[in-house]
């Protein structure tokens, strides 16, 4: 059996702000094996980025890990110091941020920025690093890499900049690549190019990817497993087919129903999820989705639902499953 690359157990993380404690992550658990592609979906503020950042130790003050364990590639993340993190970042895990416009330094050339990463993490000479930078730009499909190395970020388009970001992230061949909304700021035709590139690179280099996005379309084509997050909880986890064709949680169902289908034949009305997202400063006592749920029961408002396993790879946090199981159990007896 292959070794687990990443294992997160009951992670709890809060931001201690002036307005009070914001519980960004509540008992988040999942694991990944080498080569897996996991999608994390959810709306803004649901904790999907924080989950990924915590693996890299990027949730600095006022964020604090208050419980749980994170094992990544033999490291115990929750016990690591900043110095150890610095060694791990880039080498074993790296990240692509959402906005390629703001994550590159405008006053350095592309070449400079890639070489900086390579020289920080390896003991290559300047010349070797430049050669490697050129190689990387070719790898991410940029034409005239020689010329690009001397250009500044403002001279490149959004899609090109995102390619540079990917090149930087891949500089040291990490085992895990975290892509935080890598295509949200891009146009659909460019998005298609970048997604295709990521799939190619994954096949070539065999790395694992965590894909954070709010676009269900992106995860449907890219990922094998999906975690659906709502208000800091993973409310449902399963394979892509299970999430799309047998969704268990009411929120997942709502999400799938609320997107307009391009190939729909008639004019159907969209089914939105009513209400507004939760205020994480004052989360509801029970299930966080209860105030917006159409099948809300009394127990939902009081207590957080336990985990219900729907199959070996599929679980969901919803009282309705418990109720169903109890009813089925009752009949069997």
């Amino acid at each position: 059996m292959s070794e687990k690359l990443l294992e997160i157990q009951d992670e709890r993380l809060s931001f201690f702000t002036q307005a009070g404690e914001v519980k960004a992550l509540n008992n988040v658990s999942f694991s990944m094996e080498q080569g897996d592609v996991l999608g994390i979906v959810g709306e803004s503020g649901s904790g999907k980025s924080v989950t990924a950042y915590s693996i890299m130790g990027l949730t600095a003050y006022p964020g604090k890990l208050i419980g749980g364990t994170i094992h990544f590639n033999g490291h115990e993340i929750e016990k690591m110091t900043e110095k150890e993190f610095r060694k791990m970042r880039g080498n074993e895990v790296s990240i692509i941020f959402q906005d390629p416009m703001t994550s590159l330094n405008p006053v350095y050339t592309i070449g400079n920025q890639i070489v900086e990463v390579i020289r920080l993490h390896t003991n290559k000479t300047k010349k070797e690093a430049y050669a490697r930078a050129k190689e990387l730009l070719e790898l991410v499909g940029m034409n005239e890499p020689e010329k690009r190395l001397k250009q500044y970020p403002h001279e490149l388009s959004g899609g090109m900049r995102q390619r540079v970001m990917i090149a930087i992230a891949l500089a040291c061949e990490p085992k895990l690549l975290i892509a935080d909304e890598p295509t949200t700021a891009l146009d659909v035709t460019i998005q298609a190019q970048i997604l295709e590139l990521m799939q190619e690179l994954r096949a070539k280099l065999g790395m694992s990817i965590i894909m954070i996005t709010h676009d269900l379309g992106v995860v449907a084509s890219m990922c094998e497993k999906i975690a659906v997050m709502y208000a800091g909880h993973i409310v449902e986890y399963g394979t892509t087919d299970e999430i799309f064709y047998q969704p268990g949680h009411e929120y997942t169902k709502g999400l799938i129903n609320s997107i307009p289908k391009l190939n729909a034949q008639g004019k159907e009305r969209l089914i939105p999820i009513e209400g507004t997202p939760v205020d994480l400063l004052n989360p509801p006592a029970g299930c966080p989705f209860a105030p917006r749920c159409t099948n809300c029961m009394k127990v939902c408002l009081r207590e957080m639902p336990p985990r219900t396993d729907l199959s070996d790879t599929h679980y969901s946090l919803c009282w309705l499953h418990q109720k169903q199981q109890a009813e089925q159990g009752g009949k069997a007896e």
Partner: peptide
């Protein structure tokens, strides 16, 4: 064709 379809089988 570039629009990501939210349906894994079609995608």
């Amino acid at each position: 064709s570039a629009i990501p379809v939210a349906d894994p089988k079609t995608a």
